[in-house]
Design a protein around this nucleic acid. Structure first.
Lengths: 123, 123, 123
DNA sequence: TACGTTCTAGAATATTCGATG
DNA sequence: TCATCGAATATTCTAGAACGT
């Protein structure tokens, strides 16, 4: 029995598996002492890794899901003009997504699509 | 402990890193006992340092941001003598930008884009 | 006499140059008899071509601009079969963006930031 | 209903250029 | 002259909306 299991929704379970799999640490893995995760090779991640877990190979769809679940991008201080040879990494964080603590995952909730009204009248 | 972190906007975090980095003190650094900062080598600053942090290499764009965040230029008292060969240094100051006190940074707010009306009614 | 010149905004001029440059037709170029344009190699386009024209290398920023200028994605009719090795191309279209007619570009207007009020009163 | 994927838009900051006092 | 500001576009991060399962 490993970390994220049955109770967690599909996306979160796959995200955890993706990040926690040490065999793909050159593409995506934990960072900042396990407090966030980083995509190190954006292109390889989108085209090779994503389709193994999801029905697409678009980074934008992956990011849309991250935002739906309350993750936030971590901005790098030294991100100026794209240094030609510098590997631009993408980093995301969620207060309940931490290395070694899959039990926290159940606190992460997907945002609900805002209905027209929450009160008496509902279209 | 790393100075400017999450809550602060991109510009302020980068500005702090730029000024506080002692390895570039010949170009930009703290001045007046840490109450302001000075650009000592304008050319090197604009063309070499700026693009490492921002998506441009123009001093004017950097100054525009400083003004947006409420910084003010410190006018050189400048002995009346016109020293033609004097190294022109540029100095800026903000009451919440002080050496050793990165915690003050969160008090610095970016000016909002001019509101809808400039006349009588103003929201 | 060259295609997109002074009157057109920066993005449109660069977009035209990007699409109309036949030396990069393996990455981006005209399609559908010049009625739209296609990105054939997404990764090469983002990381190699974009930074030569813009201050970034993100496809998402490029797409945001396209939408700001009223371009629409052309959805692939795409035979239902999921061809694993098929080169996914990205296609966009605008009624005033046509091969051989740079004079139409001046009709393309950037969307303005949403005004203060959307209801009854609108200035 | 809830979730997933896609296309487009909102909102805040960033960059540029020119105006203002 | 010069420090600051207004305004337009550009870039980034997140969200809305439509559709499908």
């Amino acid at each position: 029995m490993e970390g994220a299991s049955t109770v967690v929704s599909g996306f979160l379970a796959k995200l955890w598996a993706l990040v926690d799999d040490s065999s793909t640490d050159d593409v995506i893995g934990w960072s900042r002492n396990g407090q966030s995760f980083s995509i190190l090779d954006e292109q390889k991640f989108a085209k090779e890794l994503l389709p193994k877990y999801f029905k697409h190979n678009n980074l934008s769809s992956f990011v849309r899901q991250l935002n739906m679940y309350g993750f936030h991008k971590v901005v790098a201080v030294d991100s100026g003009v794209a240094a030609p040879e510098k590997t631009m990494t993408i980093e995301f964080q969620h207060s309940f997504f931490k290395q070694g603590e899959p039990n926290l995952l159940e606190n992460i909730k997907r945002k609900v699509q805002s209905p027209c009204f929450h009160g008496h009248i509902l279209w």
